[in-house]
Design a protein around this nucleic acid. Sequence first.
RNA 1: GGCCCCGUGGUGUAGUGGACUAACAUGCCACCCUGUCACGGUGGAGAUCGGGGGUUCGAAUCCCCCCGGGGUCGCCA
Length: 598
Amino acid sequence: MLKSHSCGELSKKDVGAEVTLAGWVDRRRDHGGLIFIDLRDREGIVQVVFNPETSPSCHKIASQMRSEYVIRVGGEVALRPEGTVNPKLPTGEIEVIARNTDILNPSKTPPFYINEEIEVEENLRLKYRYLDLRRARMKENLLLRHRAVKFIRDFLDAKGFIEVETPILIKSTPEGARDYLVPSRVHPGKFYALPQSPQQLKQLLMIAGVEKYFQIAKCFRDEDTRADRQPEFTQLDLEMSFVQEEDILSLMEELFTALVAAIKPEMRVTKPFPRLTYAEAMERYGTDKPDLRFGLELGDLTDIAAQSEFSIFRSAIAEGGKVKGICAPGCGGYSRRQLDELNKLVQSLGAGGLVTMSLGTAGGNLNDLTIKEVKSVAARFLTIDQIKQMGQRLGAKRGDLLLIVAGNPGLVDMTLSELRQEMGRRLKLADPNLFAFAFVEDFPLLRWDEEAKRWDSEHHPFTAPRDEDVPLLDSAPEKVLGRHYDVVCNGYEIGGGSIRIYTSELQRKVFRLLGYSDEEIDSRFGHMLEAFQYGAPPHGGIALGLDRIVMLLAGEENIREVIAFPKNQSAADLTFDAPSPVSQEQLAELHLRLREER
RNA sequence: GGCCCCGUGGUGUAGUGGACUAACAUGCCACCCUGUCACGGUGGAGAUCGGGGGUUCGAAUCCCCCCGGGGUCGCCA
């Protein structure tokens, strides 16, 4: 090693020791005589003193040093002189008196600050990711991720799980997200696909008798990115044999509780994790991944609105829509401008508009509300009783603001869900020290795809229907509930799983329901159907979005902040400038010819 | 593909029709400085304001197109 110690590990107990350090120049303070260098390595920062009287040659070399130069310093650890202790630095009681030093590698002036916590344009950060990762925030995020993954591995190991790697080059299956394809050199015209998840592989491992499997698995989906979505991401994938829903859910509750306690002990979790049915989540929050750190629940006002003379409500209901709303407490005094902003948000999400109803500014009991106080375009089409009923249903007081959306039920729920999040942010309702985990259960097994005119899996086609619903598969598929569950936390879906189908008969029935011919089923999923016939145990599992989990633990709002080399919104890697063109020779070997794009 | 936001010295910002010959902070360079720690001091270099076109006597500023980035809807079995 070129170093005997880490910068950050030195302390008073090392005083008198001869040490050799190596790292990066974090900061240089040149007093003309004395030069101070803050030397940084992964473990921290320590001050090095270059004194021309102690070592003229060292001092001369130090005067050449600049930010981010890689240097090596040999010297003695000394207590700092009286009055020069720096309490802001963990190593602030000591310093290293340089006796010999050299510059291992100089550095160009970095394109942005390494030693300051200021926002830098993300393009630039990603292009120079190796410099960005030197910054404290990124370094901490990498470390946090490592600790979280280590904890998870140890936890599952202690529970008897074994980690099994599954292939990255596998078969394209038509369902689900768009596949990343890899052309085969050996098989002209054929392609591998990168796994969207190891779903089928882990089920085969259950049939193989592994019983308890997990994997920190890279997954690939060629879909548009989001703040919490990357084309390439990491799942904590696990599967168990001979289990039911409760086994997986209680394992998850134990895992997350222990994980938070180990990694973020200052954060609280709500225990036991609340359990919501899908229907309940949609009804109360308008989404299947509600942020349960605050209330602001949605209320259905359709019945009251139907009694009104307000044409927007009436026509929406006549067309099979509904009217729902939320109550923003104490916002009755919102300005025209503020209301316009909310209206704009709603319209940008595709809803026709937002009906705002200010219940005055006075505050107090809803019963005291007078029609004169109510400010809303809908006010003159509603009786004061109807307004009070709406307010009551939404838990409003005088002085609150009702936000009401009418229209297509799905759109109303989506819009109000976003509006709820927005009001939660504006009113700072979410406890920043809380991880509000919850389980969502009882998802419908199938969803009608209007474009393709066929049934589609809500989760994936391997999800088992509830036993009692199996007869409905033939008569009323829309009523069948799946044995699927999601884990949500603070408004993010952080995982989902299910108890699986494990007989080929039922599996084939579901595939047929999804519109596949028997030929298609056999060519695409024949390996699964056959495997089920060789003693497949009942099994189930879950896949967790590791990047999202680490993001939440790190208090970040974007998973790129917890991925060492993420892709940008257009799925490009700016450090490598990937994807990139390849040579004609490479294409020829793969039996590919590029088409002219119009 | 739709909608919204952003683009000004290396970095982060200010500037929303004339006083901008583009400001501030920091970084960078030079010189001075032996106890600093976001060291201090003096001086200096550095942006034709993402690109193109237009309106105007005059554009960083207004309009149009394009490029790049971010957020989001669609999409994500």
